[in-house]
Design a protein around this nucleic acid. Structure first.
Lengths: 337, 337
DNA sequence: CTGAAAGCGCTAACAC
DNA sequence: GTGTTAGCGCTTTCAG
């Protein structure tokens, strides 16, 4: 059996309180300090975090709830978050809900049952109701990437509207007028924002908005694949398509490759979220890139602050900027009118 | 404050033992059962897993330690593992060590400090020494994807030698004789095994093995990029290259694209690990594909068994088979001699 | 089947 | 600065 604080009490002749105090960084006479350190060494003592958790009502673990793991955005962000939290001695318990709203709600309950000290989540549901349980127990929650409209929460987001606006604008500047967008369902915050950016850019340039050029659907490879296929089949095909999410981008590229449709010769495209993909594909893709590390850093820090009791008057919303990575997947129509 | 077992004791007039027994699925008089259930409902009672953990010396959490998260293989496997474990009421605490052996050892200590009931790991280090601490405390460990030669551990692997053998053999069958391999450093179990498969296929076909065609290096995009660049620069360039890992594949494809080297016209390639990539790239890549879901399922189940005390006489090693996904990235040299 | 009581390993008053 | 003591919320003997 592992050594306990009592064993080191016996070995040193000190009291539990003194040992505990040492363990928690309190002041102890130098000689006692040495004695304790010696005993710890000899007995291979290590704090039992569970017992400490029961006594302090803190588990030093945080829950991370996301849609799925095998996703470049989530993977990178979590990787970074985990590192930061561990450096602060927090463990990271992960759950993925696979886009299932019911599972998402259950996962919160699950994490709460594990008594996590805080929760970081990239929401799937449209409503924040599933977070109520955490809120009820005063477990701090920080939203990552997506927000809710039914209630404000502490969150770290990117300016999705601007991201999309700039991408579409750069298409317009290169002479494109028939521009399509393949995006997510309206239930996703990010999808709505990105569509808004599209509208803004089109309106600003006085370009007509055709509903047939707006392809809403699930944020999956299939949606990108089928939507771009449909766009290509139209009599009045767009000259450019904005692929407003990673999976969509992947699906669209696969479809173009399969059909032998060349970009930018036959159609121009701008993708989303994965710098690496931009280079793997030939010609290199124009890409909207999110500052994943920064997102992670801010989110982790915000949660750390909340857990430490540093709570601002109102909810805090941090919005970061995306960048637009140029490639060779957009034709410049303005030079040969 | 959240309701405790004592509150429901008060409300029902029953004893702690009875309530506890109910909570743990024991037999209780129907009327008492009802009373307890009512109290639970009213008080919003939920078991405090931390207190339970202290009493039972089980935390119902497992630690997962991997090299990195933003990696298709690890991401997919963990996603699956987490799902299975959660269904059994286990939480998953993740750590990534970023390929740092020291961090890897510390992470085990960290997980042990969190009192996980078991550990699942894709090792980074060459020696299993870092797992000793877990072993000492009799915390079950299951290795995923990579094994050690210094000691046997329970593990779920794939037959890497066969995977590689088949890939290289399929190149040979298509008339290739000058075949290169870009692989990982010898310190990685998987790298050694994959190289062995290459040797086996070459020897079997009586083909000479040139050291200059064997490019060992870090399992990163850069290694793939630079190695294929060097191979192309040789006077006596290989006609085919086996890219024995996902990052290497990515790097090689990027390099080929950048330099305008066409495959399979200028060089044939077979990649590794990501079906999606196979389709994103044009022409479609030949790919060695690992059964990630199966790996995850077996690993999770094995750990669940160990934690439940089902321990076999000797260590258990499960070896799964990979498959070879055909594409258009390999030229058939045998038809135009 | 139920109850009383001890204890898991640690923290946190509170006295000294 | 140190020791005593009383819990944290639950499980688990052992009687009844």
């Amino acid at each position: 059996m592992a050594a306990t604080i009592r064993d080191i009490k016996k070995m040193t002749g000190l009291s539990l309180a003194t040992v505990s105090k040492y363990l928690n960084g309190g002041n102890v006479l130098p000689e006692n300090r040495l004695a304790i350190e010696h005993a710890i060494e000899v007995l291979h003592y290590e704090v039992n975090e569970v017992a400490r958790g029961l006594a302090t009502n803190k588990t030093k673990t945080v829950g991370v709830l996301i849609e799925r793991f095998d996703n470049i955005f989530a993977g990178t962000v979590i990787s970074e978050i985990e590192d930061i939290l561990r450096a602060h001695d927090y463990g990271t318990i992960v759950c993925d809900c696979r886009g299932d709203e019911k599972l998402e709600e259950e996962s919160i309950k699950f994490l709460l049952g594990k008594r996590v000290d805080g929760i970081l989540t990239i929401p799937t549901s449209r409503s924040s109701k599933y977070l109520q349980a955490a809120s009820d127990r005063e477990v701090p929650v920080v939203l990552v990437d997506r927000a809710f409209e039914d209630r404000d929460w502490d969150s770290v987001l990117v300016d999705n509207t601007a991201a999309s606006y700039e991408a579409v604008k750069s298409l317009i500047q290169r002479g494109h007028r028939k521009i399509a967008i393949i995006c997510g369902e309206d239930k996703f915050y990010t999808a709505r924002m990105r569509l808004q950016g599209y509208f803004k850019a089109m309106e600003e340039a006085d370009l007509p908005i055709y509903p047939r050029y707006i392809k809403r659907g699930r944020l999956e490879v299939e949606h990108g694949y089928h939507s771009i296929t449909e766009l290509l089949k139209m009599e009045d095909s767009p000259t450019a398509v904005f692929l407003s999410n990673y999976e969509i981008t992947l699906g669209a590229v696969i479809a173009l490759n399969e059909k032998g449709v060349r970009f930018p010769d036959d159609i121009s495209i701008i993708g989303f979220d994965n710098m690496m993909l931009s280079q793997v594909v030939k010609p290199n893709l124009w890409m909207v890139v999110q500052p994943m590390q920064e997102i992670a850093r801010h989110a982790a820090q915000m949660l750390l602050d909340r857990m430490a009791g540093r709570v601002p008057e109102t909810t805090e919303k941090i919005t970061l900027k995306t960048s637009l990575l140029p490639g060779d997947s957009v034709a410049d129509l303005s030079i040969k009118p």
